[in-house]
Write a protein that binds this DNA or RNA. Structure first.
Length: 740
DNA sequence: ACAACTTGTCATTCG
DNA sequence: ACCGAATGACAAGTT
């Protein structure tokens, strides 16, 4: 019962911290769970974060860290707090910029990820984002970028707004409204605008460079900003071809251009009429993997090199590069036209080909079925099932378009996409997760959620621990250094015990010296090797934390006798005020030894000490209280420090997760955009090829009766529609089974 | 004066 | 049973 309560409390606390920090619904598990099993623990909170014994044991096992259990490094403690506030500020700063960056740098496969820069990456992103939004049309720009990213997100089915951190509900609502407005406006830009994309690539490059060289950023940033704005002016409103605006553009286009003949209409229908099943998280990964496989195919294709003038790893930009018109190859096979060669074969749709659609997105629109809902569903979401499987299988295809050509594209895409890529491969390819995963795992494997590994803890935690250990070790080896170290790091509440000791010595406390020497031997005069690591002697009872200030200061510092009498009195007055209540009480009760000893002596020695004096009951009681309070005070300090450490670690982990999530979302948006483009190309190619086929009488085949089917060896078959449908159905079931 | 933060203390639980 | 550590809660002090 109690353990359950404890567990719940810990979990709730950490979960609350996580949620509050994230501020949004983070479907991190969606993206990471399969790669990072420990993330589950992270999200749910390390149950050991606050556990007592593990912390204790961890400190005492001294696995290479040498952290003194009682040593509290105040400097680092406060440093940690300062860093915490900075981190928080960063987090807030990150809010508006995450999506801005996602939009502007989304084509950069590596630059914006900046996996190895915990906070600087964010800062850079922030700066770039701000640079971009500080233009004249600040608000417009911002909303545009937000819209771009957020629509992408919506398209992904990511319900959560692309913002992180401390956004209020009003903020989210506002952003949401802006999205809607932009969606309604059909805003969009670059998709098929080659020149624009070129510019954008440049801008992206500069953004990349700027991110790497923060110093040089402002100047170049302004330049890039200017160009970017120009681009926006060109394309932002005029041509709704942008990926996120696909929904609106397509839906708008349908009513006006739905009259074209049924041939093209039917041909395209299978691809454009997908129904969106409820968004499946697993599906998202499936999508990503599929897309990546497609892109791998692209890269492997020879013709792709022509098109990939963009930086390597930037598949999207290449998709828009229109190859120079090439002679139409009547022998074109869909195999050659497969994904890798899409762009080149795109030239088939050059104006030379009059009877066939050209490679303009607008020309594809008339081919779209008049059923606009299908359109919406197809392009408006990320469920790729509609891309791979014939519409009739999705249950919403209209009857005319349904049986038309599910198989052709289904076969091609299915084969290309449905081979599984392990998530780990994906992760490695992105250069992210294995390392981070192990990091996170380590961090949360450590007891009590404390990061004792300095390599994992850039914050003050590690340094704090390190200095703590150094102070404790020095206390055992060198009295002078221990003295200075302790005074520097401030043994809270007991720093004035030295004066108490002085006073007591001055008062001539009888029998004190033997104890004192014994005490010293115990603590730091023991010449044995172990003395360097006093905690090895008393793993559970090392109480040198507060011992040093009094014992060492009094022993090593110039005695008050060296001071002038007046100043001595002043000092004693001053120190009187510095004394703790217990010290005053001890003085009042004429306790013959220092509070330090009372508190820090091991039990046996403490009892020994007590037995050597004739102490009244009141004195004994006070001594026990002093000991109890003193120990509890240190315990409270440790506890608070530990709590803070835990929060800091959690905060850092949340940051990491937010970064990862943003990056994954960006990547997904890119992949989906790429997929969409490829899909369109495949559609066009299909139409191209199918439209050129003639039967023995020289008449074109009816798409309602025949379909092209792609085989594994790259050949293309013309098969009856019914057969194609059958095979499509079979293929639909496979992936589903595979997923289970 | 007041809020926020810090620190010490007590009570309690746990190992 | 006792001890010490851990920790929530509270109060006093500090900023």
């Amino acid at each position: 019962m109690l353990s359950l309560k404890k567990y719940l409390t810990e979990g709730l606390l950490q979960f609350t911290i996580l949620l509050s920090l994230i501020g949004v619904r983070v479907d991190v598990d969606t993206y990471l769970t399969s790669q990072l099993p420990p993330l589950r623990e992270i999200i749910l909170g390390p149950s050991s974060a606050y556990t007592q014994t593990q912390f204790h044991n961890l400190r005492n096992t001294l696995d290479g860290y040498g952290i003194h259990p009682k040593s509290i490094d105040l400097d680092n403690y406060f440093t940690a707090r300062r860093l915490l506030s900075q981190v928080r500020a960063l987090d807030r700063f990150q809010v508006p910029t995450t999506e801005v960056n996602a939009w502007l740098v989304h084509r950069d496969p590596e630059g914006s990820v900046s996996g190895s820069q915990p906070s600087s990456g964010l800062a850079l992103e922030s700066s770039s984002g701000l640079q971009d939004v500080t233009g004249t049309d600040n608000g417009v720009r911002e909303s545009e970028t937000e819209q771009g990213f957020s629509e992408d997100l919506e398209d992904l089915g990511a319900v959560a707004p692309p913002v992180s951190g401390d956004l209020t509900k009003e903020d989210i609502d506002l952003i949401d409204i802006l999205w809607r407005q932009d969606i309604d406006l059909g805003a969009g830009r670059e998709i098929f605008d080659y020149s624009h994309r070129q510019k954008e690539q440049d801008v992206d490059k500069e953004l990349q460079d700027g991110a790497e060289q923060e110093d040089t950023w402002p100047g170049e940033g302004a330049e890039a900003l200017a160009r970017n704005l120009l681009v926006d002016g060109e394309t932002g409103e005029s041509f709704p071809a942008q990926f996120p605006a696909d929904i609106s553009s397509l839906t708008e286009a349908v009513p006006s251009e739905s009259e074209p003949p049924g041939l093209q209409n039917n041909l395209l229908s299978p691809l454009l009429t997908g129904t969106e099943s409820p968004f499946d998280l697993e599906q998202q990964w499936q999508d990503l993997m599929s897309i990546m496989e497609m892109q791998a195919m692209e890269v492997n294709t020879s013709t792709s090199e022509i098109l990939y003038s963009a930086p390597p790893g930037d598949p999207l930009s290449a998709n828009y590069s229109l190859a120079p018109n090439t002679p139409i190859n009547q022998n074109v096979s869909l195999h050659q036209a497969s994904l890798g060669g899409c762009s080149q074969d795109f030239s088939l749709f050059s104006p030379e080909v009059e009877s066939l659609p050209v490679a303009d997105s607008s020309t594809l629109l008339p081919l779209v079925p008049s059923n606009s809902t299908n359109l919406n569903s197809t392009f408006g979401s990320t469920n790729l099932a509609g891309l791979f499987f014939p519409p009739q299988l999705n249950g919403t295809a209209n009857d005319t378009a349904g049986p038309e050509l599910p198989d052709p594209l289904g076969g091609l895409l299915d084969e290309a996409m449905l081979d599984e890529i392990s998530l780990m491969d994906l992760a490695i390819e992105e250069g992210f997760n294995p390392v981070q995963a192990s990091q996170l795992e380590e961090e949360f494997d450590s007891d009590s959620g404390l990061s004792l590994d300095s390599s994992h803890s850039p914050s003050s935690l590690s340094s704090s621990e390190g200095s703590s250990s150094s102070s404790s070790s020095s206390s055992s080896s060198s009295s002078s250094s221990a003295s200075s170290s302790f005074s520097e790091e401030g043994a809270v509440g007991y720093s004035s015990d030295s004066e108490t000791l002085d006073l007591e010595e001055a008062e001539g406390a009888v029998g004190y010296q033997p104890e004192y020497s014994k005490f010293c031997r115990m603590s730091y005069q023991d010449p044995s090797p172990l003395s360097c690591l006093p905690y090895l002697e008393h793993v559970g009872h090392n109480h040198t934390y507060n011992m040093a200030p009094s014992a060492l200061d009094s022993a090593d510092l110039p005695p008050p006798s060296t001071l002038k009498k007046g100043s001595k009195e002043k000092q004693s007055d001053f120190l009187d005020k510095q004394m703790s209540r217990d010290e005053h009480r001890a003085r009042a009760m004429k306790i013959p030894f220092t509070n330090d000893k009372i508190i820090n002596l091991p039990v046996e020695e403490f009892n020994e000490l007590l037995s050597k004096y004739q102490l009244s009951e009141a004195q004994l009681s006070l001594i026990r209280d002093i000991r109890r309070r003193g120990k509890n005070k240190m315990a409270a300090q440790n506890c608070r420090k530990r709590k803070l450490d835990t929060i800091l670690n959690l905060e850092r982990d949340v940051e990491d997760l937010q970064r990862d999530k943003a990056r994954l979302l960006r990547e997904k948006v890119e992949f989906l955009r790429s997929l969409r483009q490829m899909k369109q190309k495949v559609q066009s190619l299909y139409q191209e090829v199918f439209g050129r086929l003639r039967d023995e009488n020289g008449r074109p085949y009816s798409p309602s009766q025949y379909a092209l089917q792609y085989t594994g060896d790259g050949s293309v078959l013309l098969i009856p529609r019914a057969l194609a449908d059958q095979q499509a159905r079979r293929q639909e079931r496979k992936p589903k089974d595979r997923r289970k």
